[in-house]
Design a binder for these strands. Structure first.
Lengths: 228, 228
DNA sequence: ACCTGAACACCGTTCAAGT
DNA sequence: ACCTGAACACCGTTCAAGT
């Protein structure tokens, strides 16, 4: 009665993809992407490094599964917009893009993991489907909906990459990058940089993100009204 | 008469930062970021790997110098906008952002190198200064100018990262990613993805980039007129 | 079927020693 | 002052052999 796809006979099997991906995300949060090695992951799972290759063909395959799992934090169900539930297209798109950023921020180096992979798993596809649905139902033609979606995702990736790079531990406090940038700006002929350096080096990434999100939503609104 | 900062006595010195960065960019174009190792670079320079550490404290330091050099391709001089020379703020901003994309596309994995580093060198600062100057002189207040600039850079980084990932060699033709995405989309309940999959997997990155650039410029225009 | 042990072909970085 | 030679402490991946 036991089909070959439900083995269950033999030993319990100490490893499976789901458990391995979960442990890998914990390890990522603890040590960062640079130190996430197959050997260290195997250690945590009480196994030899080679054993991982029975479940993932390469490390890249594991990273893709991790990215896919991260996107599972996004609630892409139709009703999940703002507090109300039935927001307009702009509100619903905003909610989805914010959820993507949150999903990447939820794990150390999350944006780098996401950016280095291309999952075609259900969480990734459900997110794209939801965003494209909002845009198409708002009246954007297919081509514009697709490009608006890509633009939003690419911006969110770039932003979150920079956000996580800026708040990387590196050493102790928080200087390093910010300090040497400030120094270089003030030492050279950069009046516009000097006038804005406080904002540029501010850690208020929420405000930076929301500004650019507003700009893009407003730009899309303009494009949509022009087409009607 | 020979000051300590101009040695010149002793041996010719086979290595210097400028030459090393140039060779590193050539190697990058030939083999890609994954295969750009200190040992291979040393080989090309006819030297042992350890010798590189007299000129760069770490590999990260070398990558930062490479990113800085790449941005040198951007002409950030005031007159360098469109064909005319004296375009409006939107045209000048467009020209600068396009030039940034071109600079990253000019080298294999250019976006990944740029995204993984934070140069405070003259080319990087001159580019930021030019873009911020355009925005501030257009009447954007400092905070908005800074955030608009960051938004543009983050989008361009994200876009170019995806563009270079999509056109990566990997193996032979061009399938792999696109094929399995198409398969997964058509196999599942994704009507909106199915309707847009042709655009989403299209290799017309110029069009994708220009669309998102238009959206952002239009959004900025709206924000600016609202403030006056 | 699943994992171990051990190897292969590499890495970035350091540093005494040479010239 | 600048580079070599050699090492240290790792990597991802493969694969015969065990159970």
């Amino acid at each position: 009665m036991t089909s070959p796809s439900t083995p269950s006979r033999g030993r319990p099997a100490r490893l499976d993809r789901a458990k391995t991906v979960g442990t890998a995300l914990e390890l990522l949060d603890d040590v960062g992407l640079e130190a996430l090695t197959m050997r260290r992951l195997a250690d945590r799972l009480g196994v030899q490094a080679g054993a991982l290759y029975r479940h993932f063909t390469t490390k890249q395959d594991l990273l893709t599964a991790m990215a896919e799992r991260m996107l599972g934090d996004i609630d892409a169900s139709p009703g999940a917009a703002g507090a109300a539930g039935a927001a307009d297209w702009a509100g619903r798109l905003r909610a989805l893009v914010r959820a993507m950023r949150r999903a990447l921020l939820a794990h150390r180096d999350g944006a780098r993991v996401f950016g280095g992979t291309h999952s075609v798993g259900p969480h990734t596809l459900a997110f794209a489907e939801a965003a494209l649905g909002v845009l198409r139902e708002a009246g954007f033609k297919d081509e514009d909906a697709a490009r608006a979606f890509m633009g939003m995702v690419n911006f969110t990736l770039g932003h979150t990459l920079e956000e996580q790079a800026a708040s990387a531990p590196d050493e102790g406090g928080a200087p390093g990058d910010v300090g040497s940038l400030r120094e270089a700006v003030l030492a050279g002929p950069y009046p516009h940089l000097a006038a804005t350096i406080t904002v540029l080096t501010s850690a208020d990434f929420d405000a930076h993100f929301e500004f650019a999100l507003d700009v893009q939503i407003e730009g899309l609104r303009h494009l949509r009204s022009g087409a009607e």
